[in-house]
Write a protein that binds this DNA or RNA. Sequence first.
DNA 1: TATGAATGAGGCTTCATTCAT
DNA 2: AATGAATGAAGCCTCATTCAT
Lengths: 225, 225, 225, 225
Amino acid sequence: MLKTFLGKIVTTTSTDRIRLKKQRFLEREQLIKDTTLGLLIRDGVEKVTVSAIATEAGIGKGTVYKHFQSKAEIMMRIVSDYEQMLVSNVNEGIKATENGDPGAAAKAYFESRLANPALDRLVQQLEFRLEADESVATEMASLHKIRHSMVETLNNMVSKLIARGLLEDVPPHYHYLACWALAQGAVDVCFNQGFADQFDDKEKLLNFIANIGVTMGNRGQFREH
Amino acid sequence: MLKTFLGKIVTTTSTDRIRLKKQRFLEREQLIKDTTLGLLIRDGVEKVTVSAIATEAGIGKGTVYKHFQSKAEIMMRIVSDYEQMLVSNVNEGIKATENGDPGAAAKAYFESRLANPALDRLVQQLEFRLEADESVATEMASLHKIRHSMVETLNNMVSKLIARGLLEDVPPHYHYLACWALAQGAVDVCFNQGFADQFDDKEKLLNFIANIGVTMGNRGQFREH
Amino acid sequence: MLKTFLGKIVTTTSTDRIRLKKQRFLEREQLIKDTTLGLLIRDGVEKVTVSAIATEAGIGKGTVYKHFQSKAEIMMRIVSDYEQMLVSNVNEGIKATENGDPGAAAKAYFESRLANPALDRLVQQLEFRLEADESVATEMASLHKIRHSMVETLNNMVSKLIARGLLEDVPPHYHYLACWALAQGAVDVCFNQGFADQFDDKEKLLNFIANIGVTMGNRGQFREH
Amino acid sequence: MLKTFLGKIVTTTSTDRIRLKKQRFLEREQLIKDTTLGLLIRDGVEKVTVSAIATEAGIGKGTVYKHFQSKAEIMMRIVSDYEQMLVSNVNEGIKATENGDPGAAAKAYFESRLANPALDRLVQQLEFRLEADESVATEMASLHKIRHSMVETLNNMVSKLIARGLLEDVPPHYHYLACWALAQGAVDVCFNQGFADQFDDKEKLLNFIANIGVTMGNRGQFREH
DNA sequence: TATGAATGAGGCTTCATTCAT
DNA sequence: AATGAATGAAGCCTCATTCAT
């Protein structure tokens, strides 16, 4: 509490305090997610306990439960955040595609997923684990909804590209699902033991694969079959 | 003990009995593996307990440990068995490739992995989980050894195809790892929730993707980049 | 929050609360050790389970593991605590010996071990069981280190007594190991079934034995041999 | 079945066969006990399983149970056998004592127990473990009975020695229980970790202790107290 | 509000004993 | 008579979650 030279009493207003609190609260939420993510990547999904998260984050175990209803919710949020990043990037790509760069959407997608393969792989793992978890059913449904709307957008876009003769005339979802599959596989290939672990040029390999992804299904590339 | 119409005494010999016992023992081992596999696919890796396996197989919990040293070993065996099937099929394909059918190896590979995507996916999950498990380190090492030798064979084969101008001239492993990646992704695409689960023509989709896999990297298909 | 008659606000400070918590935690640790000790003496080493300890202590099974890493650690701690008591008492005796009372060290030793034969015997049992247990190897090594330093001190002391002609001139460790052996045996004799269990004058017997221990090896007592 | 040159049929008589059977049966019983003993000493009481015994003995697990009702019974028999050996040796000593060699009984006792300290220690362990085991209560009672009769014999003998002025005039059992205690302790001293394990002259140490045992309580050795 | 001690369900594994062959 | 596969009770330990301070 301070007095100005005019004697006016200056207090942090109640609104200010609430705002500050909210900010701190949000920061802490982010801290928990970040810490969890770090541990998940470092130690593997099975090894990460709520205790470890709290310790690593420098807070109490109880505090974690002030922010998230369960361990599953933390993981679900990591998945959601990742998906949102992905959707946002792909949407940018779709805009670019519609503005005349046919490969932009696919490129954005691959770049987003392959930028941090370890993270991408982790998120796949998490999503798989959470699929049957009733405690995050709502969030999972919401995730799927986002994907569905993305599917519609993609169908639209791909249909136009097919109509313009730029892509092979197969059901539109073939194209983007093949794209998804290739990205998925590209990520996994980075971690395959005993098969892909003997080569150091991962980056170039990923480029090679991404290029397949960006160009596959392009008109004129396929032999008659 | 029976007498035939000639009065000859018919007994089961000791050897017979031992053989029968051994066979039953092996059958039970298979039963455990099969039961485990079924549960893993039905309920997910985390949900399957040794108790559940025993109950489902209709045997005692202790019996499981007469056949396998640990739960991890059962899972490891499932992984090994799958890999052996795969290697065997691919080797057939490689022979065919060397006998004049360039795409045979890749085709065999895709067909093997996509024949039962749920199983393939499960095996990936299991392998990932067992990677850091010291209790199956030996078996895991042996699995990797098999893969390494497969890698050599593939390098050989692909190098020849490159030399003959049938495949793009990139490091040989680009080709089969891209293949691996695509297969991996194709499997995952089948289970992707909220994105790929709205379409029923999985089979055709897999064909589409497999076809990309079989033809990708083939000479003349790639634009200049 | 209370106001004193002077209006001073009295609160329990955060420091106070933390101190209180820590104290309670330590008390519980002691409770677990005490309960375990009681059960071990009452029921025998094999019969005591972590479950039983928890139930008897009126706490949850998990709580035990907040204080000790394993069942073995609880037992190891009991052994260590006992050894510390012993060392501390013997050190007092050694001081007295050096201050002119030659038998004080041996006396202190016997009194310590024979004060509670059942406990002493239990500790021997525990130590024997824990000897090969890798999970407490560190603590066991530390126990041995303490003993080694005690050995040095005793060697020193006995050497001086030999030099002063008070003890027979044999290697110094003969003296204190014979002492150890006799104490050990005296404890066991209390529990020998069918042989020593028919007599009620245990106390006097122990005194008789302890007296042998205190005087054995004293100069002039041994015939020529 | 053989025919002699006179045509007389020679068969092993039923009595012969039964005798042979019995002998084999007894041999096998001994084999099981010996094997068990070997394993107990080599691996420690906790580590020895019935499975291990059967395997090591080269027989089936079920066969073990044809000879002994339970694992506890095998161990009980080992204890009984040892006790019988002990009693037999001490009885020899007592005879010698009565024939004019006062220290012979004590000497026999010490020699018997210290001849194989590892075995002696094991037997103590086993007896302790079996004390509360209801399944061998009968055998245990019988063991105690043997000891009781030994106690009477000893009391007799010691009383005579006291009467002849050869031993200090304390209750007779003081003498032989002190003897027992010292032997017990001498055995344990061989295995004490961190205290007695630094010396190599175990044999001489045991002699030193045994000598104390043989001479302690002898008239004239004790100061006035 | 933040904390972390306490909880206990539930998982994996061992092993003495049984019993069909 | 000998066998060893099968059994399941019982033990140890982990960890998500709660709640008193």
